Amino acid sequence: MRLLGEVVPFISGIDTPEIGSHAKSLKERKLALIAKGRLRELLAEKGLRVMFSGAVDKTQTHRPLVNIYRTNGEEIGKKLLQEGFARTWSPRHRNDWCNG
């Protein structure tokens, strides 16, 4: 699994802004770059544990969704939510990063 580079982990239960051509607005693209930078900082920590959540996404490749834990037991997805870099993901609701 590539944790950094063009693709970031698919973290279970969160939604982050889209990057590049997938973004719906310049605001979303900028938020995505900031969120990616914060995730990169968190993933640079030593001693992270990556655990399969038991779920896969709905794309053709069925990518596994993971939970990533820091050494203090804190889940990185929850940290991103608390800091405002992510929102709760729901299959029934698409987050609007351009106006919200």
Rank of each mutant, 00 (worst) to 15 (best):
M1Q: 12
L3V: 12
L4S: 08
L4C: 11
V8D: 01
V8A: 05
P9N: 08
F10Y: 12
F10D: 12
I11C: 03
G13S: 08
G13L: 04
T16A: 11
E18S: 12
E18Y: 08
I19F: 09
G20S: 11
H22T: 04
L26H: 04
K27E: 14
E28Q: 09
L31D: 00
L33C: 01
L33R: 05
I34F: 00
K36V: 01
G37C: 00
G37T: 00
R38S: 06
R40V: 02
E41T: 00
R49V: 14
V50E: 08
M51P: 00
G54E: 00
G54I: 00
G54H: 02
A55G: 07
D57C: 04
D57V: 01
Q60A: 15
Q60R: 15
Q60F: 14
R63Q: 12
R63L: 13
R63K: 14
R63N: 11
R63H: 14
R63I: 05
L65Q: 11
L65V: 02
V66L: 10
V66G: 05
V66S: 03
I68A: 07
I68R: 03
R70F: 11
T71I: 13
T71C: 05
T71F: 09
T71A: 13
G77P: 05
K78V: 09
K79D: 06
L80D: 03
L81M: 12
Q82G: 13
Q82A: 15
E83N: 05
A86R: 02
W89K: 06
S90R: 12
S90L: 09
S90G: 01
R92F: 15
H93S: 14
D96N: 15
W97Q: 03
C98M: 07
N99H: 14
